[in-house]
Each structure stands twice: as structure tokens, then as C-alpha cells.
């Protein structure tokens, strides 16, 4: 019988057309991870298995975090704001300052998120969370993962002059925490 509590942070990076490096910054001074895509230009126009194979060869992460962390890496290709491909890695550990090649273990994320099961519970996203009870938003409005990533694509990729691109997500485990209670803490304000 053992109870472990693990705390995770998540960071995102968008690779704008022409760039080779992007920084994944974690919130609250959580440090950064540098993401480098060797020969990023070659990725343009690639999709499916070809893209996966190219990512396997070209993605490199360098930790600028203080301690070794366990992480998971995901890449989503967007076309006109729609997710066209998704890849996910297994969990792996990255030491401070060390490099990782998460592409080595990239597999098609569709296995993780088959069809419309991708991002179940559309209202999971902070943008939508602003509307309590997000189901109140009519289905036609953009709110699902596709909508969210579409906004990311439009706001970021298009600003960089590209309609399409690849969004990377890095999930990292941080120190174990001991201070939070079980369940949802509630107290009088």
C-alpha cells in the first residue's frame, strides 16, 4: 500500500514556418524546454507516416529545467486550423541540461484519440472554461480541441505568415507535492 502524489505541468510550442527552434515555457517560472527540429523546412507538405518518420529523425528536446523530469511529447499537424495528424510519444525521463529524441518513440496519436473521441469533453479547455457550464455554448461555435487548436493556428501560425503548421505539446512531471488534500478542497472565503 503506497500513495504517491505527482504534479504535472504542460507547455506548448508552435513551430512557425521557416523556424527551427521553439521554446516550451512552463507557467509560474517552471523553466523551459528547448525544442529543435532539424531541417524543419523539410517537414512542410508532409503528412501521415511520412511526417511521423521525419519527426522521428528531427525532433530534439533540451531540458532547461532544474531537475530531471518525466515527460510525454505530442505533435499535432494543423491544416487551416484543423488537426490533420497527431502523434504522441511514450513517457520518458529527461535530466536537467540533457537532450532527448522523443521522436524515437512517436506513434500515431489517433490510437490514443480515435476519431471524434479526440479530446472528449470539449469543454475541457481553459478558453471555454471561461464560460461556466460550457455546454451552454451552441455546438456550432468553436470550442472543441479543433476549435482551440484552430485558434492557436490562426493566432500564431498565421501571424508568422503560415496557414498551416505543427503544434507541439510537452507534458512534464514536476516534484511530488504533499500539501494538497484529496478531493476538491473547499473552504469559506
Amino acid at each position: 500500500m503506497a500513495v504517491t502524489r505527482r504534479n504535472f505541468i504542460a507547455g506548448t510550442a508552435v513551430l512557425v514556418a521557416g523556424a527551427t527552434k521553439a521554446t516550451v515555457a512552463f507557467a509560474k517560472g517552471g523553466g523551459t524546454i528547448e525544442l529543435e527540429v532539424v531541417g524543419a523546412r523539410r517537414l512542410a507538405g508532409m503528412s501521415g507516416e511520412k511526417l511521423r518518420a521525419a519527426l522521428v529523425k528531427s525532433v530534439r528536446l533540451q531540458s532547461r529545467l532544474e531537475q530531471p523530469v518525466k515527460m510525454q511529447f505530442l505533435a499535432a499537424r494543423l491544416v487551416d486550423g484543423e488537426i490533420a495528424d497527431l502523434f504522441a510519444s511514450d513517457g520518458f525521463e529527461l535530466a536537467s541540461g540533457a537532450q532527448a529524441f522523443p521522436g524515437d518513440m512517436l506513434f500515431p496519436g489517433d490510437m490514443l484519440f480515435p476519431g471524434d473521441m479526440f479530446f472528449p469533453g470539449d469543454m475541457l479547455f481553459p478558453g471555454d472554461m471561461l464560460f461556466p457550464g460550457d455546454m451552454l455554448v451552441p455546438p456550432g461555435e468553436p470550442r472543441a480541441a479543433r476549435g482551440l487548436l484552430g485558434r492557436v493556428a490562426k493566432d500564431t501560425l498565421l501571424r508568422g505568415g503560415a496557414g498551416n503548421g505543427i503544434v507541439f505539446f510537452v507534458l512534464a512531471e514536476t516534484r511530488a507535492v504533499s500539501s494538497r488534500g484529496l478531493g476538491v478542497p473547499t473552504r469559506r472565503g
Binding site: T12, M117, L171
Partner: peptide
């Protein structure tokens, strides 16, 4: 597996927030 997907989706949602804010 469905819980894993929700966890991942929530984490990606959290990660996307700063990008959207920017």
C-alpha cells in the same frame, strides 16, 4: 484509457492557455 485521454486533453488545454493569451 478514456481517463487517460481526458487527462491528456485537460493538460493540453492547460498548456494552450498561455499561447491563446499571447
Amino acid at each position: 484509457a478514456s481517463a487517460d485521454r481526458r487527462w491528456l486533453a485537460a493538460m493540453i488545454g492547460a498548456a494552450s492557455e498561455p499561447l491563446l493569451a499571447a
